[in-house]
C-alpha cells in the first residue's frame, strides 16, 4: 500500500454510558469485570474473559452456538446482557471437563464423531448437558426436538443424537 489514510478529524465526543462493575462465577471461578450495559454475555465471555469456547453463529438467538448454562439451565448468551447476570453461576464449554477428565458428553461426541468443523459443538454439548439435567427428553424423537435449537450446518445430527443417547444410557462410546 503506497499511501496512508488522511487523518480524519474527530468531531467533539459525546460520552458513552459508564461501565458497570459486575461479578459472576464462571466455571466455578469468581470473575469481576466492568462492562457497559450493551455487552452481551457472549461478547463478555469471548472478548473480555478470554473464553472463546462459546461461539457466535448468529448473534440473534437463531442458531444455539452460544448456548451456555446459567444456574444450571441452558440459555443463549447472545441474547443475554452480561449486566443482568450479576451474581449468576455460569458454565461454559471450558468448564465441563473436571480435573483434566472430559465430561462424558465430550468423550461421546468424539467417539461418535458428533461434529465436523466443531463450531456448533460447544453449544451442542452445553445444550445436551442442559437436556440431560432437565430429564424430560427420553425417546429419540424427544431428544431431536429438544436439540432443535442447536443448528449444525455440517449436518452431524445423527451422530450428535447417538452421542447423547449413549451418555443417557450410561456409556460414552
Amino acid at each position: 500500500m503506497q499511501g496512508r489514510p488522511q487523518a480524519t478529524s474527530h468531531p467533539p465526543e459525546r460520552s458513552l454510558l459508564p461501565k458497570l462493575e459486575i461479578a459472576f462465577r464462571v466455571n466455578g471461578v469468581e470473575r469481576r469485570v466492568a462492562l457497559r450495559p450493551w455487552t452481551t454475555l457472549l461478547d463478555a465471555l469471548r472478548e473480555h474473559l478470554d473464553l472463546t469456547g462459546t461461539k457466535k453463529g448468529c448473534d440473534h438467538g437463531q442458531c444455539g452456538a452460544c448456548t451456555v448454562l446459567i444456574n444450571g439451565r441452558r440459555v443463549l448468551s447472545c441474547l443475554t446482557l452480561a449486566v443482568m447476570k450479576d451474581g449468576a453461576e455460569i458454565t461454559t464449554i471450558e468448564g465441563l471437563a473436571q480435573n483434566g477428565e472430559l465430561h462424558p458428553l465430550q468423550t461421546a461426541f468424539i467417539a461418535h464423531d458428533g461434529f465436523q468443523c466443531g463450531y456448533c459443538t460447544p453449544g451442542q454439548i452445553c445444550s445436551a448437558v442442559g437436556l440431560i439435567a432437565e430429564g424430560r427428553a427420553k425417546t429419540s424423537d424427544e431428544i431431536r426436538e429438544s436439540m432443535s435449537g442447536n443448528i449444525c450446518r455440517c449436518g452431524c445430527y445423527p451422530n450428535i443424537l447417538a452421542a447423547i443417547e449413549a451418555v443417557m444410557q450410561g456409556s460414552e462410546t
Binding site: 438467538g61 444455539g64 448456548t67 439451565r73 441452558r74 440459555v75 443463549l76 441474547l79 443475554t80 445444550s127 442442559g130 437436556l131 432437565e134 429438544s146 432443535s148 435449537g149 442447536n150
Partner: peptide
Amino acid sequence: GASPQLRNM
C-alpha cells in the same frame, strides 16, 4: 415455539 434455550429465557 422457539427452542428450549429460548423458552428457558
